[in-house]
Design a protein around this nucleic acid. Structure first.
Lengths: 218, 218
DNA sequence: TTATTTTGTTAGAATAATCTAACATTGTAG
DNA sequence: CTACAATGTTAGATTATTCTAACAAAATAA
């Protein structure tokens, strides 16, 4: 049995993992707002349970079992977010904190029903892919808007670091998933982009914003 | 701040309270499946927090503050049950365990939205009243079917001790809230009732069952 | 009313999850 | 290459929740 606390550590490891699947104790500590010694001791515990590979002073890595369990928590989180937006009428900026709690409900029935009522969605309201019932994640590859060039016309397909503040900012600018953006020019000084979209002929997006918008060209 | 564990104690106290609002340590211990010494120490803690009146060897009683907090947990539980049945398509026998977990979600927004989507229901799927946002419970007075007499025609309005097994039994007998039952006779020997309802001209309900069915005459 | 059963409390220990303080290792900047 | 900074670990303490064993009070039955 995986405790609620352990679920949170697994999820954080899953979300922080780089290409190599590695995470530092320090990063994890910051992400969870839990002090490093606590993280170290929890890693030893998760290693006992064969959920994490742990060696002193080495980066952390989920085992296959750990990855699966983590993905199942992420699945519950993302399905919940989707349900809150699609079926209950919450805004995409309101759902993270609620899903953070509902994700710990232990009832396959409950999440299967949500999945079914939503028509088995592949993406959550922020464009992140929803792992399947076996913990498999169909990874979609997006580009950061910040890596695109002047003249490109792209579609906003996902957002990262989905803080409520950032999402409210996007709401104010009338940017949502699906918004088509044309890059008119890029300011070399601060890498801000002058763009046009919707009924806005010209608008400037800071580099920070452009780094958090994931886009597709199709 | 009231912990999840404390919420469970408060809810159990609320549900077990007799007319005088009193509950024994032993009863509470059985209800929660937690040993008596643990219950005693938790009662001392809740007394510190002014949620419970506690004196050695005396029955337990919620304070006004405790009653309110308990009612708010019960509110979340019953709203959740109603939502699961009305909006998600679960059967009334499936919802208790899920609601038992969802009730601990801390988000006024979430439960307000559920309330609104349901149209501010007054009763849960088992006929129990839903406390309002201030923890006030509009108590409805029902009679036990077991207290009725031969010849009475009554409507099933609520069920108590809503175990999944009991509710499945009612499903099999096609008894649900609203079912009109005519009492044809009462067997003095075991107090079972011969009744008719729906398309069943005659059916026998044991005393145990009749004790758990709450009815109205209207 | 005395003996027995039931109920309730105290004392002490265990587990899970967290912290701070001190120490150790690794990485980096002169 | 050394010294400082950043990262990570160990040791020991704390809080919340639970338990068992032993004792105490209250209720009940003979």
């Amino acid at each position: 049995m995986i405790s609620l606390t352990e679920e949170n550590y697994l999820k954080a490891l899953f979300n922080l993992a780089n290409n190599a699947g590695e995470v530092n104790v320090n990063e994890l500590s910051k992400q969870l707002a839990i002090k490093m010694p606590t993280v170290t001791s929890m890693m030893k515990k998760l290693a006992e349970k064969k959920l994490v590979y742990y060696e002193s002073y080495k980066p952390l890595r989920l085992t296959e079992k750990g990855k699966k369990e983590a993905a199942l928590v992420v699945r519950k989180h993302r399905l919940t977010e989707m349900y809150l937006v699609d079926k209950m009428g919450f805004g995409w900026e309101e759902v993270h904190d609620i899903a953070e709690q509902v994700e710990h409900v232990r009832s396959a029935q409950f999440f299967d029903k949500i999945d079914e009522l939503l028509g088995f969605p592949k993406l959550d309201p922020h464009g992140a892919p929803i792992p399947d019932k076996n913990g498999k994640l169909a990874w979609v590859s997006y580009d950061k808007l910040s890596n695109c060039h002047a003249g490109d016309i792209v579609k906003v397909s996902a957002v990262i670091h989905t803080s409520s503040e950032f999402l409210k900012f996007l709401n104010n600018r009338e940017i949502s998933l699906g918004t088509k953006i044309k890059i008119k020019s890029i300011e070399p000084f601060d890498r801000s982009m002058v763009v046009s979209y919707g009924n806005r002929p010209a608008d400037t997006l800071s580099h920070i914003v452009c780094e958090r918008l994931l886009v597709t060209f199709g």
